[in-house]
Design a protein around this nucleic acid. Structure first.
Length: 269
DNA sequence: TAAGTATGTTAAG
DNA sequence: TTAACCTACTTAC
């Protein structure tokens, strides 16, 4: 489930399980074998996350840069690792357990300078401490592009994906088709602060929940929703179903090759 | 067995 | 704007 909250969670989990100790690194699948051999036995000193990019720091040896893409996963386990199942790109093993990385779009060994260059092309991340949203507002307030597209642009904001994009626009009643430059400063401030809150909740829970207490299925006397992404949401992947607030059918359309979900009744601003 | 789907990004046309 | 790519899982035939 790779939006930014997942990546920050993974950074913390890698540090907790492996940090400060030598780890064994391998690539059962083989596609990261040469770099894994270089890192095998080194100490994981620090981890970092910026948007959907995960960084594992091995001091002078450099950083592992991981991007999960659409369907990459990391599976942690206790104790010694079993025989690898499926295509395991990177396996880390330590005294505290092991972790298997499968299906990432990127898994590469990079230098500190290369890491700096990656940070430089990413916008502010609602999950990074003391992050300044001002550069994002500068871009948004000058752009004719829709706010729905801008929220997904990692150069503008880092870490927001298709679920948070749809949900935060719903929660603020903002139409996804509004041009960025037509947003008020107050609307932008509300978007940023809602993302900060929602994504911290998501990082803590390991799933995306956006439904306010008064609209939960329990509060509304309806059966809980069943969806494989695991969280309670207002519009994401609910196309055709009645809006939890106004009962109009949730709408969907394809925008920049991604599915956009919104409620025409609730999002008129 | 094949096709379709997914919370993403890049590069080619 | 389209295709390609990384993988696993579900559904259709």
């Amino acid at each position: 489930m790779p939006e930014g909250h997942t990546i920050h969670r993974l950074a913390a989990e890698h540090l907790r399980v492996f940090g400060g100790r030598a780890v064994r690194a391998s690539s059962p699948q083989g596609r990261f074998a040469a770099s894994a051999a270089l890192l095998d036995g080194r100490v994981l000193e620090q981890t970092d996350a910026h948007g959907k990019h995960l960084f594992l720091g091995f001091g002078e040896s450099g950083w592992i840069h991981v991007h999960l893409g659409l369907y990459g996963t990391v599976a942690f386990g206790d104790g010694p690792a079993p025989e690898p199942v499926g295509a395991v790109r990177l396996r880390l093993e330590g005294d505290g357990g092991h972790a298997d990385l499968r299906g990432p779009a990127a898994c590469e060994l990079i230098t500190a300078a290369e890491k700096d260059a990656l940070h430089a092309r990413l916008g502010p991340d609602p999950l990074r401490p003391d992050e300044d949203p001002q550069p994002a507002w500068q871009r948004v307030s000058r752009s004719r592009t829709s706010i729905a597209a801008l929220l997904m642009d990692q150069k503008v904001l880092a870490g927001v994906g298709n679920v948070y994009r749809a949900e935060v626009l719903f929660r603020l009643g903002i139409s996804p088709h509004r041009a960025g430059r037509d947003l008020t400063r107050a609307e932008w401030d509300a978007l940023w602060s809602d993302l900060v809150g929602l994504m911290h909740l998501g990082a803590a829970a390991g799933r995306i929940d956006t439904v306010r207490p008064e609209h939960t299925p329990e509060a509304m006397g309806r059966p809980p929703r069943v969806d494989d992404h695991g969280g309670e949401v207002y519009v994401y992947r609910r196309s055709g179903m009645p809006c939890l607030v106004c009962r109009q059918p949730v709408r969907t359309e394809t925008l920049a090759a991604r599915n956009l979900f919104w409620c025409a009744g609730c999002q008129q601003r």
